[in-house]
Simulated scan of single mutants.
Amino acid sequence: MTASAVRRTPRADCTVGPDGGITFDLDPHRSEDGERPELLLRLRGAKGRGRDAETVRLSLSPLRDGRLRAVLPGTTQSAEGRWDVYLREPGEDDGKAVAVEPGIRDLRLLVDRVPAGGRIAVRIPYPTLDGRLAVRCWLRAPHAEAGPVTFDGTGMTVEGTLYGTGLGTGARVEARGPGAGGRVLRVPVAGQEGAFAFTLPLDRLADGAVTAQQLWTLWLVPGAAEGEPARDVRISRILDDVWDRKKIFVYPGRSAGKGVRATPCYSTDNDLCVRLEPEPSP
């Protein structure tokens, strides 16, 4: 292979496995000293955690077609967040590692995924806005997966599936207003065998004055077992191949009365929310 056939900027194809692991296949690459480089995954925005805590190092092995392969096992302990992918040449400092470009991303095994239970690890390789490869990671135990969202008048009904725990007696959903001292609206939740459903009265969210946009977060609080405190579970949607559904899953807004408009939405972390804002002028 000629030097001109080797890419200057590393590029990787990614395949996601059923256990949350990822295989990275890099284009043919030649190091000056003949040693193989190393693939680095860095946690974006990590501060005060130490280099080892914010970096995952993966060794690269040669394939028959000249490419290099690295495997991130599904059992790897990696924090929730966005991990940028870099290639580090042998003998070089981590700071000189080069960002990797995304190639083909095979995410088929993420679609309609049904976890076995326990800790849920989801990792989705994706292209960043500036053309680099990154991995979005979620670690949830337990986890409340949001499903269909429907409307009836000023009521918003959400169906979903709870993994890793049961609803228990007295389970509820809490809509929590912005700020540490924000209002909380509690509604009962029903379900069985993992399925849950609740209806949120949007007009009750608008009881207070809404003069600017507010983002209310949704939490499922299972009934506490005897001798154990209840665990709040964020209601999110992560069990598919969509790494950022904020601009993809767009719901219509509804009048919540009192000049307030309520709109279900997802955050950039795929958490289900309700956005309140003043009704636009006619």
Rank of each mutant, 00 (worst) to 15 (best):
P10R: 03
D94A: 13
G147A: 15
R8D: 09
G259F: 09
G21L: 05
V111M: 08
T154G: 11
V158N: 00
W138I: 14
G257E: 05
W216E: 11
A5L: 15
G117R: 10
W138D: 08
D207W: 09
G45Y: 08
L40K: 02
P178E: 06
L39F: 10
P90S: 11
G48K: 04
P282A: 15
T76P: 02
G208A: 14
Q192M: 07
G170I: 07
R113C: 06
H29P: 00
P222N: 03
A180F: 01
S281V: 13
I238F: 08
A224N: 07
L276I: 13
I22V: 15
L202T: 10
P127N: 05
V149E: 04
I248V: 15
A206W: 01
D52V: 10
V233E: 00
E80F: 00
I22R: 00
L215Q: 08
I104G: 12
I120K: 03
L107G: 13
L162K: 10
V100C: 07
A116N: 05
K96Q: 10
T157P: 03
G103T: 11
R136W: 13
P229A: 15
G147R: 02
R183T: 14
T76D: 12
D241Q: 14
R275G: 05
E54D: 12
A97Y: 08
L39H: 09
S267T: 15
D93A: 15
T15I: 13
V122Q: 00
W83F: 04
L185Q: 08
R119Q: 10
D207A: 15
R275K: 08
V187K: 03
R261W: 04
Y251W: 06
I248S: 15
R57N: 04
D94C: 09
G257L: 06
R183Q: 07
